[in-house]
Design a protein around this nucleic acid. Structure first.
Length: 564
RNA sequence: UGGGGCGUCGUCAAGCGGUAAGACACAGGGUUUUGAUCCCUGCAUUCAGAGGUUCGAAUCCUCUCGCCCCAGCCA
């Protein structure tokens, strides 16, 4: 990736830089992104991905992609495949370094036996409820399990039997022998292994005991030679356990765990549990619904991966919990698309205009630039004729002071075409609704410039009526009506704040012919409207479906907050 | 009332004892065949609060206040 610009410093980069300068780990930097394949990745994961892979890129190190697949009850191949596709789409490459915690099940098992033999772990035969009761509370110490001092040999043999399937789920667990009175609950003899007679999506029925996160994660990091193990804040309390495991097992590689604050974004929800709810309850149309903050959704919405990377760079990394304003993300997307998207004209809500002094059956092709600021992007031909469509919103019969667009008697410019003047408004006699406009054009203004230098106050986009292609356009808006759906006055469920108009579908929108043949996923700017992308899924042969990625900045809506 | 973290502009965020970067947002102005883009300009005498150390503190010390996380055989 060479579009990564001069980056901002943050506490992790500072720390890693120091390590490299001090030649710690021989100056190597090896990080990892360790998702659990139990859901789709979202923009919060993108922050972690950019951080981990970014660090590896900055220091010419490596970043592994490792699946933390230690709980087969919740994990699926579908998720694994989606995660791989998403990380790749974001633009990162792990080379040969694709791993799974399940690759290490044998090693992990051997480490566990070793721990027992060192007197640092034991098989506990308390029930789950009893373990909880023995744990104590936040303010009271726990009690030792009656099995805590069971002979090493007995624990070893029991553990072997757990592994060979002789016990039922819940009857025994392997626990670390640390300190039941520790003020850090993670150190009160945490569970290391539990029996789960569940088929694993990679190891099948080879195992019926599975390691817990703390045990598997620390050792997987060590096995892979990770130097910096970066995770989110809630694991801060686990760091002593992470270190304990690696110290007791005296492994040669002991990575440094560093915690940072996870991303929160206004007007959306980034907890896997809640995203799953939205998908399963049919509130959105799937994991790749363009309203979702999932990578799959974002991709379908038309956000470029480079914009996501820029966003992750701009928001920074710290240990302060925060909620980023939505505008920050949108600005990154506009920034990117403004430079790269070709411009095209599309009328979302058409109003017919008849140019009365244009020849009947007349037709010509006008040259229109694909990007006004970037001539290198070339021009295209746009057909022009006697009947065209303009946006309904661009005409007002009784315009207020600041309305610069078309109105009776007013002259405006049609982008790259001609000046037109509105002479007559044709209405439905019954409803009074404006049906069409009769205008005249000035042939001398071809291309949109006037030889006499007279000015018009606005330029409208348009499409030639007989040449227009009908398309469907989906206008997406934020999924929730409040900045923090889960943090609103108690009592209410986050789903109470779903934005009922987060999706508005427009049919029979009129677009110029130039879009024929563009590929699925392509981004375009519909002039004066926003950025749109051709939906990958919905656009069948016959009809094109465009998703609105983001609107253009709207100073206008501040001038005229409520129209009609 | 146990332990672990965090508190710098509306929102993010640099800063690490030498006198408050930057981005987004916002407000003005200029250019403009997108009310877009682009370009200027403004926007924390102050760093949760109170004391203290120091010639000098957002940075060091003390206390106070506020917020987050932890009692899965989840990750």
């Amino acid at each position: 990736m060479n579009d990564t610009k001069p980056y901002a410093m943050n506490f992790i980069r500072t720390l890693v830089t120091e390590d490299v300068n001090n030649n710690k780990n021989d100056g190597r930097v090896v990080t990892r992104f360790p998702p659990e394949p139990n859901g789709y990745l979202h923009i919060g994961h993108a922050k972690s991905i950019c951080l981990n892979f970014g660090l590896a890129l900055d220091y010419h190190g490596k970043c592994h992609l490792r699946f933390d697949d230690t709980n087969p009850a919740k994990e699926e191949v579908e998720y694994m495949e989606a995660i791989i596709a998403d990380v790749r789409w974001l633009g990162f490459d792990w080379g040969e370094n694709l791993f799974h915690a399940s690759d290490y099940f044998h090693q992990l098992y051997a480490f566990a036996v070793q721990l027992i033999q060192r007197g640092k772990a034991y098989v506990c035969s308390l029930s789950a409820e009893e373990v909880r009761a023995y744990r104590g509370t936040l303010t009271e110490p726990g009690k030792n399990s009656p099995y805590r001092d069971r002979p090493v040999e007995e624990s070893v043999s029991l553990f072997q039997k757990m592994r060979s399937g002789e016990f039922e789920e819940g009857t025994h667990v392997l626990r670390a022998k640390i300190d039941m009175a520790s003020p850090n609950l993670n150190l009160r003899d945490p569970t290391l292994y539990r029996i789960k007679k569940v088929n694993h999506h990679r190891t099948g029925d080879a195992w019926c005991i599975y390691p817990m996160y703390d045990f598997a994660h620390a050792l997987s990091d060590s096995i892979e030679g990770i130097t910096h193990s970066i995770c989110t804040l809630e694991f801060e309390d686990h760091r002593p356990l992470y270190d304990w495991i690696l110290d007791e097992l005296a492994v040669t590689c002991h990575p440094q765990q560093i915690e940072f604050a996870r991303l929160n974004l206004q007007y959306t929800e980034l907890s896997k549990r809640k995203l799953i709810q939205l998908v399963n309850e049919g509130i959105v149309e799937g994991w790749d619904d363009p309203r979702l903050p999932t990578i799959a959704g974002i991709r379908r919405r038309g956000y470029p991966p480079s914009a996501i990377r820029t966003f992750c760079e701009r928001i920074g990394v710290s240990k302060k919990e925060s909620r980023i304003e939505f505008e920050m993300l949108e600005e990154c997307v506009r920034d990117d698309l403004n430079q790269n998207a070709k411009r095209v004209m599309c009328v979302l809500s058409p109003l017919k205009v008849v140019i009365t002094n244009y020849p009947e059956n007349g037709f010509e092709e006008l040259d229109v630039p694909n990007h006004p600021q970037n001539p290198d992007m070339g021009t295209r031909k746009a057909p022009f004729s006697r009947e065209i469509y303009i946006e309904r919103e661009d005409f007002m019969e009784e315009p207020p002071k600041k309305f610069f667009r078309l109105a009776p008697g007013r002259e405006v410019r049609l982008r790259s075409a001609y000046y037109i003047t509105c002479n007559q408004v044709v209405k439905d006699p019954a409803t009074g609704e404006v049906q069409e406009l009769h205008c005249t054009y000035d042939p001398l203004t071809k291309g949109g410039g006037s030889p006499d230098g007279r000015k018009v106050k606005s330029t409208l986009h348009w499409v030639s009526a007989p040449h227009a292609i009908d398309v469907t356009v989906r206008l997406y808006d934020r999924l929730f009506t409040v900045p923090n759906p889960s943090g609103e006055k108690e009592e209410k469920d986050f789903k109470a704040f779903i934005n009922s108009s987060s999706l508005v579908t427009l049919t029979s929108c009129k677009i110029e012919q130039g879009v024929k043949g563009i590929g699925p996923g392509s981004s375009l700017q519909f002039e004066r409207q926003g950025y749109f992308c051709l939906d990958e899924k919905a656009s069948a042969e016959g009809e094109m479906v465009f998703n609105r990625t983001v609107t253009l900045k709207e100073t206008w809506s501040k001038i005229m907050p409520k129209r009609e």
